[in-house]
Design a protein around this nucleic acid. Structure first.
Lengths: 233, 233
DNA sequence: CGGCTTGTTGACGGGGATCAAGAATTGTGG
DNA sequence: CCACAATTCTTGATCCCCGTCAACAAGCCG
Protein backbone atom coordinates (compact mmCIF):
# COMPACT_ATOMS: atom_id res chain seq x y z
CA UNK A 1 0.00 0.00 0.00
CA UNK A 2 1.43 3.30 -1.08
CA UNK A 3 1.01 6.56 0.73
CA UNK A 4 -0.83 9.34 -1.00
CA UNK A 5 2.40 11.21 -1.44
CA UNK A 6 4.01 8.24 -3.14
CA UNK A 7 1.06 7.86 -5.48
CA UNK A 8 1.24 11.51 -6.39
CA UNK A 9 4.95 11.17 -6.99
CA UNK A 10 4.39 8.31 -9.38
CA UNK A 11 1.85 10.34 -11.25
CA UNK A 12 4.25 13.26 -11.36
CA UNK A 13 6.95 10.99 -12.74
CA UNK A 14 4.56 9.74 -15.42
CA UNK A 15 3.07 13.04 -16.49
CA UNK A 16 5.78 15.54 -15.69
CA UNK A 17 8.86 13.83 -17.00
CA UNK A 18 11.53 16.45 -17.29
CA UNK A 19 12.26 19.63 -15.44
CA UNK A 20 8.79 20.97 -14.95
CA UNK A 21 8.93 23.71 -12.39
CA UNK A 22 8.10 23.00 -8.81
CA UNK A 23 5.41 25.64 -8.64
CA UNK A 24 3.25 23.76 -11.12
CA UNK A 25 3.98 20.50 -9.34
CA UNK A 26 2.83 21.89 -6.05
CA UNK A 27 -0.27 23.40 -7.58
CA UNK A 28 -0.99 20.08 -9.16
CA UNK A 29 -0.53 18.23 -5.88
CA UNK A 30 -3.07 20.61 -4.37
CA UNK A 31 -5.60 19.99 -7.15
CA UNK A 32 -5.17 16.22 -7.49
CA UNK A 33 -6.79 13.65 -5.26
CA UNK A 34 -5.22 10.30 -4.50
CA UNK A 35 -7.88 7.62 -4.10
CA UNK A 36 -7.79 3.99 -3.05
CA UNK A 37 -10.52 1.75 -4.33
CA UNK A 38 -11.14 -1.75 -3.05
CA UNK A 39 -11.94 -4.63 -5.39
CA UNK A 40 -15.41 -4.18 -6.92
CA UNK A 41 -15.51 -0.65 -5.58
CA UNK A 42 -16.52 2.39 -7.58
CA UNK A 43 -14.09 5.31 -7.61
CA UNK A 44 -15.89 8.34 -6.22
CA UNK A 45 -15.03 10.93 -8.83
CA UNK A 46 -16.33 14.37 -9.57
CA UNK A 47 -19.00 13.82 -12.24
CA UNK A 48 -19.35 17.49 -13.04
CA UNK A 49 -16.22 17.75 -15.18
CA UNK A 50 -14.11 15.37 -17.23
CA UNK A 51 -11.60 13.61 -15.00
CA UNK A 52 -8.04 12.71 -15.81
CA UNK A 53 -7.07 9.57 -13.92
CA UNK A 54 -3.71 7.91 -13.44
CA UNK A 55 -3.70 4.31 -12.24
CA UNK A 56 -0.69 3.81 -10.02
CA UNK A 57 -1.60 0.22 -9.15
CA UNK A 58 -4.38 -2.30 -9.78
CA UNK A 59 -6.74 -2.57 -12.71
CA UNK A 60 -10.12 -1.13 -13.55
CA UNK A 61 -12.99 -1.18 -15.97
CA UNK A 62 -14.54 1.98 -17.34
CA UNK A 63 -18.28 1.43 -17.35
CA UNK A 64 -20.93 3.44 -19.16
CA UNK A 65 -24.50 3.35 -17.94
CA UNK A 66 -27.30 3.59 -20.43
CA UNK A 67 -30.59 2.81 -18.75
CA UNK A 68 -30.15 1.40 -15.25
CA UNK A 69 -30.04 -2.28 -16.15
CA UNK A 70 -27.67 -2.00 -19.08
CA UNK A 71 -23.97 -1.45 -18.71
CA UNK A 72 -21.36 -1.22 -21.40
CA UNK A 73 -17.74 -1.70 -20.43
CA UNK A 74 -15.87 0.87 -22.50
CA UNK A 75 -12.46 -0.44 -21.67
CA UNK A 76 -10.14 -2.05 -19.21
CA UNK A 77 -7.17 -0.23 -17.77
CA UNK A 78 -4.07 -1.37 -15.96
CA UNK A 79 -1.41 0.09 -13.68
CA UNK A 80 0.42 2.96 -15.35
CA UNK A 81 -2.43 3.89 -17.67
CA UNK A 82 -3.73 7.41 -18.03
CA UNK A 83 -7.37 7.76 -18.93
CA UNK A 84 -10.19 10.23 -19.18
CA UNK A 85 -13.57 9.71 -17.55
CA UNK A 86 -16.18 11.90 -19.22
CA UNK A 87 -18.50 14.05 -17.13
CA UNK A 88 -22.08 12.91 -16.87
CA UNK A 89 -24.10 13.75 -19.97
CA UNK A 90 -26.35 11.55 -22.10
CA UNK A 91 -24.78 8.62 -20.33
CA UNK A 92 -22.82 8.43 -17.13
CA UNK A 93 -19.46 6.78 -16.72
CA UNK A 94 -17.90 5.20 -13.70
CA UNK A 95 -14.59 3.60 -12.94
CA UNK A 96 -14.79 0.27 -11.13
CA UNK A 97 -11.81 -1.51 -9.59
CA UNK A 98 -11.23 -5.10 -10.67
CA UNK A 99 -8.57 -5.49 -7.99
CA UNK A 100 -7.56 -3.20 -5.16
CA UNK A 101 -6.51 -0.10 -6.98
CA UNK A 102 -4.79 3.19 -6.27
CA UNK A 103 -5.27 6.16 -8.51
CA UNK A 104 -4.90 9.89 -8.84
CA UNK A 105 -7.75 11.99 -10.20
CA UNK A 106 -8.03 15.61 -11.29
CA UNK A 107 -10.27 17.75 -13.40
CA UNK A 108 -8.97 17.55 -16.94
CA UNK A 109 -9.47 21.28 -17.33
CA UNK A 110 -7.37 21.93 -14.25
CA UNK A 111 -4.50 19.94 -15.72
CA UNK A 112 -4.71 21.88 -18.96
CA UNK A 113 -4.79 25.12 -17.02
CA UNK A 114 -1.68 24.21 -15.03
CA UNK A 115 0.26 22.48 -17.77
CA UNK A 116 -1.16 23.95 -20.96
CA UNK A 117 2.21 25.54 -21.61
CA UNK A 118 4.21 22.34 -21.01
CA UNK A 119 4.67 20.43 -24.25
CA UNK A 120 5.93 17.35 -22.41
CA UNK A 121 2.73 17.00 -20.40
CA UNK A 122 0.50 17.68 -23.40
CA UNK A 123 2.34 15.10 -25.46
CA UNK A 124 1.81 12.42 -22.84
CA UNK A 125 -1.87 13.28 -22.58
CA UNK A 126 -2.19 13.22 -26.36
CA UNK A 127 -0.42 9.89 -26.60
CA UNK A 128 -2.63 8.20 -24.02
CA UNK A 129 -5.78 9.69 -25.53
CA UNK A 130 -4.79 8.41 -28.96
CA UNK A 131 -4.20 4.95 -27.51
CA UNK A 132 -7.65 5.01 -25.93
CA UNK A 133 -9.17 6.18 -29.19
CA UNK A 134 -7.47 3.41 -31.13
CA UNK A 135 -8.77 0.77 -28.75
CA UNK A 136 -12.22 2.30 -28.73
CA UNK A 137 -12.34 2.20 -32.51
CA UNK A 138 -11.29 -1.44 -32.55
CA UNK A 139 -14.02 -2.06 -30.03
CA UNK A 140 -16.53 -0.24 -32.20
CA UNK A 141 -15.70 -2.57 -35.08
CA UNK A 142 -16.22 -5.60 -32.88
CA UNK A 143 -19.45 -4.28 -31.39
CA UNK A 144 -20.89 -3.18 -34.68
CA UNK A 145 -19.99 -5.87 -37.11
CA UNK A 146 -18.69 -9.00 -35.49
CA UNK A 147 -20.38 -12.25 -34.51
CA UNK A 148 -20.18 -13.67 -31.01
CA UNK A 149 -17.30 -16.09 -31.81
CA UNK A 150 -15.31 -13.27 -33.44
CA UNK A 151 -15.88 -10.96 -30.49
CA UNK A 152 -14.58 -13.49 -28.01
CA UNK A 153 -11.55 -14.23 -30.18
CA UNK A 154 -10.82 -10.52 -30.65
CA UNK A 155 -11.14 -9.95 -26.94
CA UNK A 156 -8.69 -12.71 -26.08
CA UNK A 157 -6.19 -11.42 -28.62
CA UNK A 158 -6.47 -7.86 -27.33
CA UNK A 159 -5.89 -9.06 -23.78
CA UNK A 160 -2.97 -11.21 -24.89
CA UNK A 161 -1.42 -8.13 -26.50
CA UNK A 162 -1.85 -5.99 -23.42
CA UNK A 163 -1.23 -8.33 -20.50
CA UNK A 164 -0.31 -11.77 -21.82
CA UNK A 165 2.87 -13.64 -20.96
CA UNK A 166 4.43 -16.54 -22.81
CA UNK A 167 4.90 -19.79 -20.89
CA UNK A 168 6.03 -23.06 -22.45
CA UNK A 169 4.97 -21.88 -25.89
CA UNK A 170 1.46 -20.96 -24.75
CA UNK A 171 0.15 -17.43 -24.25
CA UNK A 172 -1.14 -17.24 -20.71
CA UNK A 173 -3.72 -14.73 -19.56
CA UNK A 174 -4.64 -14.07 -15.94
CA UNK A 175 -7.86 -12.24 -16.50
CA UNK A 176 -8.73 -9.92 -13.63
CA UNK A 177 -12.27 -9.54 -14.91
CA UNK A 178 -15.29 -11.82 -14.57
CA UNK A 179 -17.33 -13.35 -17.37
CA UNK A 180 -19.85 -10.61 -16.77
CA UNK A 181 -17.21 -7.95 -17.35
CA UNK A 182 -16.11 -9.66 -20.53
CA UNK A 183 -19.69 -9.94 -21.72
CA UNK A 184 -20.41 -6.29 -20.95
CA UNK A 185 -17.23 -5.34 -22.75
CA UNK A 186 -17.91 -7.11 -26.02
CA UNK A 187 -21.65 -6.60 -26.07
CA UNK A 188 -22.95 -10.12 -25.58
CA UNK A 189 -24.30 -12.09 -22.60
CA UNK A 190 -22.34 -14.11 -20.06
CA UNK A 191 -24.01 -17.26 -21.34
CA UNK A 192 -22.77 -16.61 -24.85
CA UNK A 193 -19.25 -15.88 -23.59
CA UNK A 194 -19.33 -19.14 -21.72
CA UNK A 195 -20.58 -21.09 -24.72
CA UNK A 196 -17.93 -19.63 -27.00
CA UNK A 197 -15.16 -20.42 -24.53
CA UNK A 198 -16.47 -23.97 -24.33
CA UNK A 199 -16.32 -24.28 -28.12
CA UNK A 200 -12.76 -22.93 -28.21
CA UNK A 201 -11.84 -25.37 -25.46
CA UNK A 202 -13.36 -28.29 -27.36
CA UNK A 203 -11.43 -27.22 -30.47
CA UNK A 204 -8.20 -27.25 -28.49
CA UNK A 205 -7.59 -23.56 -29.18
CA UNK A 206 -7.56 -22.62 -25.50
CA UNK A 207 -7.36 -24.20 -22.07
CA UNK A 208 -8.89 -22.74 -18.94
CA UNK A 209 -7.48 -23.11 -15.45
CA UNK A 210 -9.84 -22.10 -12.68
CA UNK A 211 -11.93 -19.04 -13.36
CA UNK A 212 -9.36 -16.49 -14.33
CA UNK A 213 -6.56 -18.19 -16.25
CA UNK A 214 -6.80 -18.82 -19.95
CA UNK A 215 -4.01 -20.45 -21.94
CA UNK A 216 -4.04 -19.81 -25.66
CA UNK A 217 -2.64 -22.95 -27.30
CA UNK A 218 -3.32 -22.14 -30.95
CA UNK A 219 -2.93 -18.42 -31.55
CA UNK A 220 -3.13 -18.80 -35.31
CA UNK A 221 -6.50 -20.53 -35.22
CA UNK A 222 -7.76 -17.96 -32.72
CA UNK A 223 -6.63 -15.13 -34.99
CA UNK A 224 -8.33 -16.72 -37.98
CA UNK A 225 -11.59 -16.70 -36.07
CA UNK A 226 -11.31 -13.08 -34.97
CA UNK A 227 -12.68 -11.52 -38.14
CA UNK A 228 -9.52 -9.57 -38.87
CA UNK A 229 -8.47 -8.60 -42.35
CA UNK A 230 -7.04 -11.58 -44.19
CA UNK A 231 -3.37 -11.62 -44.98
CA UNK A 232 -2.26 -9.68 -41.94
CA UNK A 233 -1.34 -10.47 -38.36
CA UNK B 1 -12.77 25.10 -55.28
CA UNK B 2 -9.80 26.17 -53.22
CA UNK B 3 -6.22 26.10 -54.35
CA UNK B 4 -3.84 23.86 -52.50
CA UNK B 5 -2.19 26.88 -50.95
CA UNK B 6 -5.51 28.13 -49.63
CA UNK B 7 -6.31 24.73 -48.14
CA UNK B 8 -2.94 24.64 -46.43
CA UNK B 9 -3.51 28.14 -45.11
CA UNK B 10 -6.80 27.12 -43.60
CA UNK B 11 -5.15 24.19 -41.95
CA UNK B 12 -2.40 26.43 -40.64
CA UNK B 13 -4.99 28.80 -39.24
CA UNK B 14 -6.73 25.91 -37.50
CA UNK B 15 -3.69 24.15 -36.11
CA UNK B 16 -1.17 26.92 -35.71
CA UNK B 17 -3.21 29.66 -34.15
CA UNK B 18 -0.77 32.11 -32.67
CA UNK B 19 2.68 33.18 -33.63
CA UNK B 20 4.21 29.88 -34.55
CA UNK B 21 7.41 30.54 -36.37
CA UNK B 22 7.51 30.54 -40.12
CA UNK B 23 10.21 27.90 -40.30
CA UNK B 24 7.92 25.26 -38.84
CA UNK B 25 5.09 26.47 -41.07
CA UNK B 26 7.20 26.03 -44.17
CA UNK B 27 8.44 22.63 -43.06
CA UNK B 28 4.87 21.64 -42.45
CA UNK B 29 3.77 22.84 -45.87
CA UNK B 30 6.48 20.65 -47.33
CA UNK B 31 5.36 17.59 -45.40
CA UNK B 32 1.59 18.01 -45.80
CA UNK B 33 -0.39 16.97 -48.83
CA UNK B 34 -3.52 18.76 -49.95
CA UNK B 35 -5.97 16.33 -51.49
CA UNK B 36 -9.28 16.74 -53.28
CA UNK B 37 -11.70 13.84 -53.15
CA UNK B 38 -14.81 13.63 -55.29
CA UNK B 39 -18.12 12.40 -53.86
CA UNK B 40 -17.94 8.69 -53.03
CA UNK B 41 -14.20 8.78 -53.58
CA UNK B 42 -11.65 7.28 -51.23
CA UNK B 43 -8.86 9.55 -50.03
CA UNK B 44 -5.56 8.03 -51.08
CA UNK B 45 -3.63 8.23 -47.85
CA UNK B 46 -0.40 6.70 -46.67
CA UNK B 47 -1.46 3.52 -44.83
CA UNK B 48 1.94 2.91 -43.33
CA UNK B 49 1.65 5.49 -40.56
CA UNK B 50 -1.16 7.17 -38.67
CA UNK B 51 -2.43 10.14 -40.61
CA UNK B 52 -3.57 13.48 -39.28
CA UNK B 53 -6.25 14.91 -41.55
CA UNK B 54 -7.82 18.34 -41.63
CA UNK B 55 -11.08 18.70 -43.55
CA UNK B 56 -11.18 22.12 -45.12
CA UNK B 57 -14.46 21.52 -46.94
CA UNK B 58 -16.98 18.77 -47.51
CA UNK B 59 -17.83 15.82 -45.30
CA UNK B 60 -16.52 12.31 -44.93
CA UNK B 61 -17.04 8.98 -43.25
CA UNK B 62 -14.22 7.08 -41.60
CA UNK B 63 -14.68 3.44 -42.53
CA UNK B 64 -13.08 0.40 -40.94
CA UNK B 65 -12.85 -2.79 -42.92
CA UNK B 66 -13.15 -6.08 -41.10
CA UNK B 67 -13.51 -8.92 -43.57
CA UNK B 68 -14.14 -7.73 -47.12
CA UNK B 69 -17.92 -7.67 -47.04
CA UNK B 70 -18.30 -5.99 -43.68
CA UNK B 71 -17.70 -2.32 -43.10
CA UNK B 72 -18.11 -0.38 -39.92
CA UNK B 73 -18.43 3.39 -40.16
CA UNK B 74 -16.41 4.69 -37.22
CA UNK B 75 -17.55 8.24 -37.56
CA UNK B 76 -18.67 11.09 -39.74
CA UNK B 77 -16.63 14.24 -40.06
CA UNK B 78 -17.41 17.68 -41.35
CA UNK B 79 -15.56 20.74 -42.61
CA UNK B 80 -13.16 22.09 -40.00
CA UNK B 81 -12.70 18.76 -38.20
CA UNK B 82 -9.31 17.34 -37.39
CA UNK B 83 -9.10 13.57 -37.25
CA UNK B 84 -6.67 10.71 -37.08
CA UNK B 85 -6.75 7.78 -39.51
CA UNK B 86 -4.92 4.80 -38.01
CA UNK B 87 -2.33 2.93 -40.03
CA UNK B 88 -3.32 -0.48 -41.30
CA UNK B 89 -3.14 -3.15 -38.59
CA UNK B 90 -5.72 -5.77 -37.56
CA UNK B 91 -8.20 -3.75 -39.55
CA UNK B 92 -7.73 -1.14 -42.20
CA UNK B 93 -9.30 2.28 -42.21
CA UNK B 94 -10.21 4.50 -45.09
CA UNK B 95 -11.67 7.94 -45.44
CA UNK B 96 -14.53 8.23 -47.93
CA UNK B 97 -15.98 11.53 -49.13
CA UNK B 98 -19.75 11.95 -48.77
CA UNK B 99 -19.60 15.14 -50.83
CA UNK B 100 -16.77 16.68 -52.79
CA UNK B 101 -14.16 17.24 -50.14
CA UNK B 102 -10.85 18.98 -49.72
CA UNK B 103 -8.42 17.95 -47.06
CA UNK B 104 -4.86 18.15 -45.84
CA UNK B 105 -3.05 15.00 -44.71
CA UNK B 106 0.23 14.39 -42.94
CA UNK B 107 1.91 11.69 -40.95
CA UNK B 108 0.92 12.18 -37.35
CA UNK B 109 4.49 11.52 -36.26
CA UNK B 110 5.75 14.22 -38.58
CA UNK B 111 3.42 16.74 -37.00
CA UNK B 112 4.63 15.80 -33.53
CA UNK B 113 8.20 16.06 -34.70
CA UNK B 114 7.67 19.55 -36.12
CA UNK B 115 5.34 20.88 -33.45
CA UNK B 116 6.14 18.77 -30.41
CA UNK B 117 7.45 21.88 -28.71
CA UNK B 118 4.42 24.05 -29.56
CA UNK B 119 1.83 23.86 -26.77
CA UNK B 120 -0.80 25.54 -28.92
CA UNK B 121 -0.64 22.87 -31.62
CA UNK B 122 -0.57 20.02 -29.10
CA UNK B 123 -3.57 21.44 -27.29
CA UNK B 124 -5.60 21.55 -30.47
CA UNK B 125 -4.64 18.00 -31.35
CA UNK B 126 -5.50 16.87 -27.84
CA UNK B 127 -8.84 18.63 -27.95
CA UNK B 128 -9.87 17.09 -31.26
CA UNK B 129 -8.68 13.65 -30.19
CA UNK B 130 -10.69 13.89 -27.00
CA UNK B 131 -13.77 14.89 -28.99
CA UNK B 132 -13.29 11.85 -31.25
CA UNK B 133 -12.83 9.63 -28.21
CA UNK B 134 -16.00 10.95 -26.61
CA UNK B 135 -18.01 10.28 -29.73
CA UNK B 136 -16.44 6.87 -30.16
CA UNK B 137 -17.38 5.93 -26.61
CA UNK B 138 -20.95 7.05 -27.13
CA UNK B 139 -20.96 4.96 -30.27
CA UNK B 140 -19.61 1.98 -28.35
CA UNK B 141 -22.53 2.24 -25.93
CA UNK B 142 -24.98 2.30 -28.81
CA UNK B 143 -23.32 -0.57 -30.65
CA UNK B 144 -22.96 -2.72 -27.57
CA UNK B 145 -26.13 -2.26 -25.65
CA UNK B 146 -28.85 -0.51 -27.59
CA UNK B 147 -31.80 -1.82 -29.55
CA UNK B 148 -32.42 -0.83 -33.16
CA UNK B 149 -34.99 1.89 -32.31
CA UNK B 150 -32.61 3.38 -29.72
CA UNK B 151 -29.71 3.37 -32.14
CA UNK B 152 -31.64 5.26 -34.78
CA UNK B 153 -32.88 7.80 -32.22
CA UNK B 154 -29.37 8.26 -30.80
CA UNK B 155 -28.00 8.73 -34.30
CA UNK B 156 -30.54 11.39 -35.17
CA UNK B 157 -29.87 13.26 -31.92
CA UNK B 158 -26.11 13.13 -32.45
CA UNK B 159 -26.50 14.49 -35.97
CA UNK B 160 -28.88 17.19 -34.73
CA UNK B 161 -26.25 18.25 -32.20
CA UNK B 162 -23.50 18.42 -34.77
CA UNK B 163 -25.14 19.72 -37.92
CA UNK B 164 -28.79 20.45 -37.22
CA UNK B 165 -30.47 23.82 -37.72
CA UNK B 166 -33.72 25.08 -36.25
CA UNK B 167 -36.46 26.06 -38.67
CA UNK B 168 -40.00 26.93 -37.65
CA UNK B 169 -39.59 25.12 -34.37
CA UNK B 170 -38.40 21.91 -36.01
CA UNK B 171 -34.84 20.62 -35.98
CA UNK B 172 -33.88 20.11 -39.61
CA UNK B 173 -31.13 17.73 -40.72
CA UNK B 174 -29.70 17.57 -44.22
CA UNK B 175 -27.99 14.25 -43.99
CA UNK B 176 -25.12 13.91 -46.43
CA UNK B 177 -24.98 10.17 -45.88
CA UNK B 178 -27.11 7.39 -47.35
CA UNK B 179 -29.18 4.84 -45.45
CA UNK B 180 -26.36 2.42 -46.01
CA UNK B 181 -23.90 4.76 -44.32
CA UNK B 182 -26.26 5.22 -41.40
CA UNK B 183 -26.73 1.47 -41.11
CA UNK B 184 -22.99 0.81 -41.23
CA UNK B 185 -22.50 3.49 -38.61
CA UNK B 186 -24.95 2.19 -36.03
CA UNK B 187 -24.41 -1.50 -36.68
CA UNK B 188 -27.72 -2.55 -38.18
CA UNK B 189 -28.97 -3.14 -41.73
CA UNK B 190 -30.43 -0.62 -44.16
CA UNK B 191 -33.76 -2.41 -43.97
CA UNK B 192 -33.91 -1.97 -40.21
CA UNK B 193 -32.98 1.71 -40.49
CA UNK B 194 -35.76 2.16 -42.99
CA UNK B 195 -38.29 0.38 -40.82
CA UNK B 196 -37.39 2.42 -37.76
CA UNK B 197 -37.66 5.68 -39.67
CA UNK B 198 -41.06 4.59 -40.90
CA UNK B 199 -42.20 3.94 -37.34
CA UNK B 200 -40.93 7.35 -36.19
CA UNK B 201 -42.73 8.92 -39.15
CA UNK B 202 -45.99 7.16 -38.28
CA UNK B 203 -45.64 8.32 -34.68
CA UNK B 204 -45.25 11.90 -35.87
CA UNK B 205 -41.81 12.22 -34.30
CA UNK B 206 -40.10 13.01 -37.59
CA UNK B 207 -40.89 13.99 -41.15
CA UNK B 208 -38.77 13.11 -44.13
CA UNK B 209 -38.38 15.26 -47.22
CA UNK B 210 -36.74 13.49 -50.10
CA UNK B 211 -33.89 11.19 -49.23
CA UNK B 212 -31.65 13.43 -47.26
CA UNK B 213 -33.76 15.82 -45.22
CA UNK B 214 -35.19 14.79 -41.89
CA UNK B 215 -37.23 17.15 -39.74
CA UNK B 216 -37.43 16.30 -36.07
CA UNK B 217 -40.86 17.43 -34.88
CA UNK B 218 -40.85 15.97 -31.39
CA UNK B 219 -37.36 16.09 -29.95
CA UNK B 220 -38.55 15.10 -26.48
CA UNK B 221 -40.18 11.90 -27.68
CA UNK B 222 -37.12 11.09 -29.77
CA UNK B 223 -34.86 11.62 -26.77
CA UNK B 224 -37.05 9.38 -24.63
CA UNK B 225 -36.58 6.61 -27.15
CA UNK B 226 -32.81 6.97 -27.36
CA UNK B 227 -31.97 4.89 -24.30
CA UNK B 228 -30.27 7.74 -22.50
CA UNK B 229 -30.11 7.99 -18.74
CA UNK B 230 -33.43 9.12 -17.35
CA UNK B 231 -33.70 12.54 -15.77
CA UNK B 232 -31.14 14.21 -17.99
CA UNK B 233 -31.10 15.90 -21.35
C1' DC C 1 -17.88 -30.09 4.69
C1' DG C 2 -21.83 -26.82 3.46
C1' DG C 3 -23.32 -22.39 1.95
C1' DC C 4 -22.46 -18.84 -1.77
C1' DT C 5 -20.93 -16.88 -5.65
C1' DT C 6 -19.67 -17.57 -10.44
C1' DG C 7 -19.65 -20.21 -14.44
C1' DT C 8 -21.73 -23.79 -17.60
C1' DT C 9 -25.24 -26.06 -20.10
C1' DG C 10 -29.95 -26.68 -21.95
C1' DA C 11 -34.60 -25.23 -23.95
C1' DC C 12 -37.04 -21.80 -26.07
C1' DG C 13 -38.40 -17.40 -28.20
C1' DG C 14 -37.79 -12.91 -30.32
C1' DG C 15 -35.39 -9.05 -32.62
C1' DG C 16 -33.17 -8.14 -36.32
C1' DA C 17 -30.72 -10.26 -40.51
C1' DT C 18 -31.55 -12.05 -44.88
C1' DC C 19 -33.87 -12.74 -49.10
C1' DA C 20 -37.06 -10.85 -52.33
C1' DA C 21 -40.05 -7.61 -54.53
C1' DG C 22 -41.99 -3.22 -55.26
C1' DA C 23 -42.08 2.06 -54.73
C1' DA C 24 -39.99 6.52 -54.58
C1' DT C 25 -36.19 9.83 -55.89
C1' DT C 26 -32.71 11.31 -58.54
C1' DG C 27 -30.29 11.83 -62.74
C1' DT C 28 -30.15 11.96 -67.91
C1' DG C 29 -31.08 12.62 -72.60
C1' DG C 30 -34.23 13.89 -75.93
C1' DC D 1 -39.97 19.73 -69.21
C1' DC D 2 -41.01 15.16 -69.47
C1' DA D 3 -40.06 10.19 -70.19
C1' DC D 4 -37.31 6.60 -68.27
C1' DA D 5 -33.46 4.30 -66.55
C1' DA D 6 -30.74 3.70 -62.45
C1' DT D 7 -30.21 4.00 -58.00
C1' DT D 8 -31.86 4.13 -53.39
C1' DC D 9 -35.38 3.39 -50.24
C1' DT D 10 -39.36 0.90 -48.37
C1' DT D 11 -42.10 -3.00 -47.31
C1' DG D 12 -43.01 -7.94 -46.73
C1' DA D 13 -41.87 -12.97 -45.54
C1' DT D 14 -38.87 -16.07 -43.49
C1' DC D 15 -35.04 -17.62 -40.73
C1' DC D 16 -31.42 -17.90 -37.37
C1' DC D 17 -28.25 -16.19 -33.97
C1' DC D 18 -28.11 -14.91 -29.66
C1' DG D 19 -30.84 -13.28 -25.60
C1' DT D 20 -33.70 -14.94 -21.96
C1' DC D 21 -35.12 -18.05 -18.49
C1' DA D 22 -34.04 -21.98 -15.80
C1' DA D 23 -31.42 -25.57 -13.72
C1' DC D 24 -27.14 -27.46 -12.60
C1' DA D 25 -21.98 -27.66 -11.77
C1' DA D 26 -17.76 -25.85 -10.16
C1' DG D 27 -14.83 -22.88 -7.70
C1' DC D 28 -14.19 -20.34 -3.45
C1' DC D 29 -14.40 -19.30 1.70
C1' DG D 30 -15.69 -19.86 6.26
Amino acid sequence: MLTHTQILDRFAARVMPEGSDDTARLQFAAAARAISVAREGVARLDQSCDQLVYLSSGSTKLVAHATHDREQVIGFHFAGDLLCIPARAHHSYSLVALRDTELVATCYDKVLELFGAHPGVLEILLESTRASLDRCREKAIALGRKTAPERVASFLIAMATRTGRTEEGAMVLSLPMSRRDIADSIGITIETVSRQLTILREQGVIETVGRSEIRILDMQRLTEGAGFLPGRA
